[in-house]
């Protein structure tokens, strides 16, 4: 995996307040990198600095090996992005907007423009003026624009805003395909954990302008704890007794009227069910409770876990 974006010790103050404090991270080709954090954590500010909309106070941004400050034109050559809402020229058609954007890049053919418009399913609307578009349509056109010059780094700030459930699913699949099949490095920001979990390979959690953690989804899940199983049985006391006598009392997490919560892996739990049923404990139901990513997230935000 090739390092496409390298952010090092980035800091930025706005009106005397430190918004971004010593942020460093890398994004590699072929991965969807999530930028997760509550509102006002500094996600957008960091993205705006990477895209050249804000100037950094200190730190370096390197894209495809080119220093952002020294070789801006070269560094931005293969970058596509949408910041906040995809703003286009309202009085012009979606296609004209993309054509204008394409003109600023090398080697974009009219066929390629058709291709990206079709990719986002906007072929029917491409010749309409942008002011007639809904937010979701603008978002789709914005993504088409960001992709038109075949960038190897795609930066999307809250890309699911305004998209319906189907649109979100399509976007998710498209981004995954771009990353995993075409090797594009994708940086996506969101404040929605669920969305990030579905989309990203790695997640960077940012809080109050600082990086709190950078983990893969699996690592994050692990931080949230092991999976739990909820056993329903009429005879809780006997079940506890059997487990204790079998030397497995340590897996009992919680007991309640008719319910028993166990911490165990998938392999362990089948043995336990077998043990209990052979001991004539009637099990009326088994529910797996996935370890909460949310827990891990909240814990990291509160300064608990580190990368």
């Amino acid at each position: 995996m090739e390092k496409v974006l390298e952010v090092k010790n980035l800091s930025k103050s706005l009106s005397g307040r430190l918004i971004i404090n010593d942020v460093s991270f890398d994004v590699f080709s072929g991965e969807v990198f999530g930028f997760l954090g509550p509102n006002g954590a500094g996600k957008s500010t960091t993205i705006k600095m990477i895209l050249g909309l804000l100037t950094e106070d200190c730190g370096t941004i390197t894209i495809n090996g080119f220093d952002h400050r020294k070789e801006y034109e070269k560094s931005m050559k293969k970058v596509g992005g949408i910041v906040e809402n995809p703003e286009m020229y309202e009085n012009l058609s979606g296609r004209t907007n993309i054509e204008m954007y394409a003109r600023l890049h090398e080697g974009v053919t009219p066929e390629r423009i058709n291709e990206v418009i079709e990719l986002v399913g906007m072929t029917l609307w491409a010749k309409e003026k942008v002011k007639k578009y809904s937010l979701g349509m603008k978002q789709r056109m914005g993504i088409a624009q960001a992709l038109v010059h075949r960038p190897n780094l795609l930066i999307l700030d809250e890309p699911t805003n305004g998209l319906d459930a189907q649109g979100i699913m399509e976007l998710r699949n498209m981004l995954k395909r771009l990353a995993h099949e075409e090797g594009v490095a994708i940086l996506v920001s969101s404040h929605q954990l669920f969305e990030m979990e579905q989309m990203c390979d790695r997640i960077c959690i940012i809080s109050r302008g600082k990086i709190a953690a950078i983990n893969t989804i699996e690592e994050l899940r692990a931080l949230g704890g092991e999976d739990n199983y909820l056993l329903s049985t009429a005879d809780v006391n006997r079940a506890v007794e059997i487990l204790n006598s079998a030397g497995k009392g340590n897996i009992i997490k919680q007991t309640a009227e008719g319910k028993l919560t166990l911490v165990a892996s998938d392999e362990e739990i089948s043995g336990i069910i077998k043990l209990l049923s052979t001991s004539d404990v009637l099990i009326t139901g088994v529910n797996k409770i996935t370890a909460s990513l949310e827990e891990a997230y909240i814990e990291i935000l509160n300064g608990g876990a580190k990368k």
């Binding site: 895209l51 050249g52 909309l53 801006y72 034109e73 070269k74 560094s75 931005m76 050559k77 970058v79 596509g80 992005g81 910041v83 906040e84 809402n85 703003e87 286009m88 020229y89 309202e90 907007n97 954007y101 600023l104 890049h105 624009q145």
Partner: peptide
């Protein structure tokens, strides 16, 4: 104001 400047600045051209 409209935000359309963003697509200009993101493009690989100097300010």
């Amino acid at each position: 104001t409209s935000g359309s400047i963003k697509s200009l600045v993101i493009a690989p051209v100097k300010r």
